[in-house]
Computed example of a mutant assay.
Amino acid sequence: MCGRFALTLPHDAMAQLFAAAPSNALPDIPNYNICPTNQVHAVHVIDGQRRLVAMRWGFLPHWYKAENGGPLLINARAETIAEKPAFKAACRARRCLIPATGFYEWTKDPEGKRLPWYIHPTRGSLLAFAGVWQDWERDGVTHRTCAIVTTQANPKMSAIHHRQPVTLNEDQWALWLGEAGHGAATLMTAADEDAMAFYRVNPKVNSNRAAGPDLIEPLEP
């Protein structure tokens, strides 16, 4: 799964990288501890143009009566996304890219304490998560919401977790966003083992209130 991540790239650099028109209301960065229900950056295509916008991380199906009207859907499993009622329409017509500098996963020590790890790209400065999005309207207000697509972890990543986010290379973005025809389903696989590396970080990130660049610093032995 993916339950927490970081993003440090400036807005203008992201807009240039994704060739996307930036919204005027984007979440503050850097943010080293992005949590579920936070506003996140996302790239989607509207009226034939890529746009960099803010979305609520936590997909809200149209039948939810309130934001807490059902399970918190921060991830969508690649294996079942086309069948699940919450996601099946979005995976065909409303796909997005969610940029991240890196993300966190946890293991446990023999005493059951949670040990955080930071996973980052080995090439380039950014990961592009595959995502799906949905507009949810209540009381005349539209909330644009999203979930990150996950898949079975590759052998290297499985050392710390059995799932990992689907990450897309630049030459795959157009297909995922629907700009290059059909076939996006073929992209929902784990990245190569050499695409990412990971290391232990300070347990202070276990708190969703923690902040600051030291959260992604390697833990000293």
Rank of each mutant, 00 (worst) to 15 (best):
C2S: 01
C2D: 13
H11S: 13
D12P: 04
P22Q: 12
S23E: 02
A25L: 12
P30K: 13
N33S: 13
I34Q: 02
Q39E: 15
A42N: 06
R50M: 07
R51H: 08
R56S: 07
L60S: 08
P61W: 06
H62T: 11
E67P: 01
I74E: 01
A78M: 09
E83D: 14
P85Q: 08
A86G: 04
C91L: 08
A93G: 05
A93N: 12
R95C: 07
L97K: 06
F103A: 06
W106Q: 04
T107C: 02
P110Y: 07
R114A: 15
W117E: 09
A128G: 06
V132G: 04
Q134D: 10
W136Q: 12
E137M: 11
T145Q: 01
A147P: 12
T151R: 05
M157K: 04
I160W: 06
H161Y: 06
R163S: 08
Q164T: 12
P165G: 11
V166K: 10
L168D: 00
N169Y: 06
L177A: 10
G181A: 11
G181P: 01
T186M: 14
M188S: 13
T189N: 15
A191M: 14
E193I: 15
D194K: 14
A197S: 15
V201T: 14
K204G: 09
N208Q: 12
A211F: 03
G212E: 01
G212R: 02
E217N: 07
